[in-house]
Amino acid sequence: MPSRNDAALAFLTARRSRPAKLFSHPVPDRAQLDEILTAALRVPDHGKLEPWRLLVLQGAAFARLADLAEARAHDLGGDAEKVAKGRGQYDLGKLAVVVIASPKPSPKIPAVEQLLSAGALCLGIVNAAEAAGWGANWLTGWPAHDPDFAARAFGCQGEETVAGIVHIGTPAADGPDRPRPDLARLVTWVDA
């Protein structure tokens, strides 16, 4: 019988999503963030390709990105709602880690597996930050999926895309948890 890690299982089953817009200071310092990222980088990585890269956003980077999102929304003929949604997470950001999916050419590892590895890294950052006592929230938003914005904001090139922007900070007091999926509705057991 495998050895259980009850503390880890209890953490994962009790982990909750926390709204990034409610995060406050302090945020992790560099040593604390290095610890979080070291844990998160133990992500599944088929073929050891490291098909991702990370950018840490802090300080004035958020104002620059908010302005860039607003300008891009105007370029696209966006209305006030699109502008507000584009600026939102950057106007309120304190510290965030941008995970850039950066697929590598490989005859053995399909691009989709590399993209899933970047997604797993986003969740790894969320879980490691939460385990370290911080609040964490994985966001994207329309600007992150706009190739022009992603190139100008994060230096995305070629096949690179934004897998996630993980905001980290001091969480507000826990409110009610969101509804969780119903296993009976989603899981099918296959015996043959």
Rank of each mutant, 00 (worst) to 15 (best):
M1K: 09
P2V: 13
R4L: 12
D6L: 15
A7M: 02
F11L: 15
A14L: 11
S17M: 12
K21E: 11
F23L: 14
P26F: 10
L33V: 06
D34G: 08
I36Y: 00
A39N: 01
H46K: 08
H46N: 07
G47W: 10
P51S: 08
V56H: 04
F62W: 03
A63L: 13
D67K: 14
L68R: 13
E70G: 09
E70Q: 10
A73S: 10
D75G: 08
L76A: 10
G77C: 10
D79Q: 12
A80H: 10
A80N: 13
E81Y: 06
G86L: 02
G86Y: 01
G86T: 09
Q89Y: 06
Y90S: 04
Y90D: 00
G93Q: 02
G93I: 01
L95Q: 15
L95I: 01
V98C: 09
K104I: 14
P105A: 13
S106P: 05
I109K: 00
P110Y: 08
V112E: 01
L115E: 03
S117C: 15
G119I: 10
A120D: 04
V126D: 00
N127V: 05
N127L: 13
A128S: 15
A131I: 11
G135Q: 08
T140R: 01
W142E: 06
A144W: 01
A144Y: 00
D148V: 15
A151L: 12
E159N: 10
A163L: 06
I165R: 00
V166R: 02
V166Q: 01
I168Q: 04
I168C: 02
D174V: 09
D174S: 15
D177E: 14
P179A: 15
L183I: 05
L183D: 12
A184D: 11
T188K: 15
T188W: 09
